[in-house]
């Protein structure tokens, strides 16, 4: 049996529900979910004795709810860790580009500020480095050599194009490629220096490259007791359980062979990440 610890913000709801749909295919895998809605995960602290603990009652309640009764994350209890959302993803960089762009990122709207490529790159790297997901991953890495995988925050659904201030999204195709390049650069550094991997993104969920198709967005569920409360109409940030299912299917093989589906089928991901020695060697380098 492999135990996975999955930490995240409200996006964890889709993953938790998606996991329920497919868990029968993974009898050797057990997952504990630890969620904190909004920015509550900022209050997750290391107790320096091998556990991550909530430093606020609000977060504690969220963690109790999502984990089904646990109120601390004992790192030694898990064979692998995954972190979803919490600022990690291209969405964060899109928000940066709302106010500042390089000359080759100008689309239909003149941004308030032009910045140089050098400044832009530094801003992107720092922004990703300081997001909560990466901070928590680094805290775990400091205490555990087990695999750690980050799951990107999902692309917004196309509903976002109905927003009043949508200039950044109208220009997504212009700015996106440069943002993606910075994201990939950061991921390479993260993998090389910290042995922290990033799960593949479910490509079939994307439309117009930087949005999520309605089939994977509509019907998203809030991270509330019962996990049966729909988001309001017009919600574009959160995805539905079908999206969560796709994410979880890609996540598990990223950890390695012991986490694969027991169905006789070949895992979707090429086995390039399935080198256990690399986790430990890079983590200690």
């Amino acid at each position: 049996m492999k135990r996975i610890c999955l930490i995240g913000d409200s996006h964890i709801a889709a993953l938790r529900l998606g996991w329920q749909r497919i868990r029968a295919r993974y009898p050797e895998v057990e997952i504990d979910f630890f969620g904190g809605a909004g920015g509550k995960m900022k209050r997750l602290r290391s107790d320096k004795r091998g556990a991550l603990v909530p430093a606020s009652e609000e977060l504690r309640q969220d963690i109790l709810l999502t984990s089904g009764g646990l109120d601390r994350i004992v790192l030694a209890d898990y064979d692998a860790f995954a972190l979803v959302g919490m600022g990690f993803g291209l969405i964060r960089l899109f928000h940066l580009s709302k106010f500042q762009r390089t000359v080759d990122m100008i689309g239909t709207v003149q941004p308030p500020h032009l910045i140089s490529t050098e400044v832009f790159q530094r801003a992107c790297m720092n922004s990703l480095r300081t997001c909560r997901a990466v901070q928590i991953a680094r805290e775990i890495r400091a205490q555990s050599r087990r695999p750690i995988v980050l799951i990107r925050q999902p692309y917004y659904s196309q509903e976002v194009l109905r927003e009043r201030d949508r200039s950044v999204w109208n220009d997504a195709a212009v700015a996106g490629p440069k943002l993606e390049a910075e994201m990939e650069r950061f991921i390479a550094v993260l993998e090389h220096k910290r042995a922290i991997k990033v799960a593949p993104y479910p490509e079939e969920t994307r439309v117009e490259r930087y949005f999520t198709a309605p089939a994977y967005a509509s019907g998203s569920i809030r991270m509330l007791a019962g996990f049966d409360t729909l988001h309001e109409v017009g919600e574009y940030r959160h995805m539905n359980p079908l999206f969560g299912e796709r994410v979880m299917e890609l996540l598990l093989p990223t950890f390695g062979p012991g986490f694969a589906e027991v169905s006789g089928e070949t895992p979707r991901l090429a086995p390039t990440l399935e080198e256990p020695d690399r986790w430990t060697s890079a983590a200690t380098s």
Binding site: F99, R122, A123, T130
Partner: peptide
């Protein structure tokens, strides 16, 4: 009027 770009660390900002 030209604030530090979002994401750029304070320590780096003044260099630019």
């Amino acid at each position: 009027k030209e604030p530090k770009p979002l994401g750029l660390a304070e320590a780096e900002a003044s260099k630019y």
